[in-house]
Write a protein that binds this DNA or RNA. Structure first.
Lengths: 242, 242
DNA sequence: CGCCCACTTGATTAATATCAAATACTGTGG
DNA sequence: CCACAGTATTTGATATTAATCAAGTGGGCG
């Protein structure tokens, strides 16, 4: 199944016609090298991009060189939904692993959404979920201490991949450096290292070789105070109305 | 001007017909007392609400009693845009001051958006800006130290009010307690107090009597590393296409 | 082989939390 | 108007968390 369809199918099921409309709206696809920024702050927002494969992130730099990663993008995620409504980008996009990124014009997406209300709803759903995840990150970074926040993050990625049918057991590719992990959790790389070690010592995870393995899902969920409700992974759209 | 129209007018200008369609979509309006939660996590999302007057916030509680405020809502802000697409709420809404809150059914909003593409675009814009603000909060809480984050927050509120034409000089109503300020910045109430005091000593702000006064806007902007670009306050919609 | 980068470890410092107590402010009933 | 209770703010002392500095280990790869 095409990654975009797979992602939106979390929200609703699509007819073959809708599926092909979705897929046809995405034109070019190009390979982004690992660690390459494929959109920078202040870039004029033109095309709408979709991550087809690999792991990406959104991040913001500060003047003093600090950086905050504000979300991770998984296969099927749209990178710039609706961005034509905004004058400028407010954050950058980076490929963590090598990524396959498709592009689409905003016009053709608008056209598809006009024709298929369910697709419009699905993209709107994706935007809302993204926002919900951002709010949860504020909590993660603002309130949870390092070990707890790390556990929460590992759970988030696991549940999102799981919903895509991409979790291989309790083991998933997670090629982030400890520096990047720190940038996502709002802590230093050194502290990220100690944090990972603590989770390892508690036999909750294994992390290395660019993979994360959950050794004790219940334990990790409890440690992170994780409740998957905010990911809104249940299908919602009334398909009879299509 | 009606608060909702005033807010969306940041994005685009509306014809009288569009304005009245917008206003008519909002039915009941009720007064919420200060500190009252008017939506709780796990509430089933039914109506779409709009803040007409007062100051509100979105917040999330943790099991241990900690709380994170994840955004402030100003007059004209929609509280639950598109929320009918989600099964459950993922955060609560609280009135900080006494608030006037209007309600609307999702159906009637859908109808208005179907009829007036510009209104659809305006609500989409609002959702995107909200998400951008959430991302900036992740940075604020994750990377900036307390004084800097506080300065940044005070700038954010100022620029947002300014865009609504509601900043009275450099002085605006800000009836949050220092506990709430701490909950927004991810710091303790005691530290919030010392933080406020530092900003006062530097002659950047005055804060008291439920108002915030900016004594030195340039200084505050610099202290907070504030760049208003992420608020996306420039009108964008091509009105000739209406 | 040797270099580069990520990871690891230890020691010290800085930021912030927590605990505790005192002071001011707000509204209310008498 | 005053006394009072309750809440918010302020201050000080101490504890914890995480940052920084510095040095060492280890693997992957030209």
């Amino acid at each position: 199944m095409h990654p975009i369809v797979r992602k939106l199918s979390i929200f609703a099921s699509f007819t073959p016609e809708e599926e092909s409309a979705l897929i046809l709206a995405c034109v070019r696809s190009r390979i982004i090298r690992s660690r390459e920024d494929f959109a920078r702050e202040d870039d004029p927002p033109r095309t709408v991009r979709f991550l087809l494969s690999g792991l990406g992130c959104r991040h913001k730099m500060l003047e003093d060189g600090r950086r905050q990663i504000v979300s991770f993008m998984l296969p099927g995620d749209a990178c710039d939904l609706g961005v034509s409504l905004l004058e400028t980008r407010d954050h950058s996009l980076m490929a963590i692993s090598e990524c396959d990124v498709a592009s689409s014009s905003d016009a053709s997406l608008q056209h598809v959404m006009g024709q298929y209300p369910k697709i419009r709803a699905a993209f709107q759903w994706q935007t809302l979920v993204e926002e919900s995840i951002a709010r949860e990150w504020i909590v993660n970074v603002g309130q949870r201490e390092a070990v707890v926040g790390a556990a929460h993050l590992f759970c988030e990625i696991y549940f999102r991949l799981q919903a895509l049918g991409m979790a291989e057991g309790l083991n998933y590719p997670f090629p982030v450096t400890q520096q990047e992990l720190g940038d996502a959790l709002g802590i230093s790389a050194v502290h990220a290292n100690r944090t990972v070690q603590e989770l390892r010592q508690r036999n909750l995870i294994a992390f290395g070789d660019k993979r994360l393995t959950i050794l004790d899902l219940d334990g990790l969920v409890e440690m992170g105070g994780f409740d998957p409700a905010y990911l809104h992974l249940e299908a919602r759209y009334d398909t009879s109305a299509a």
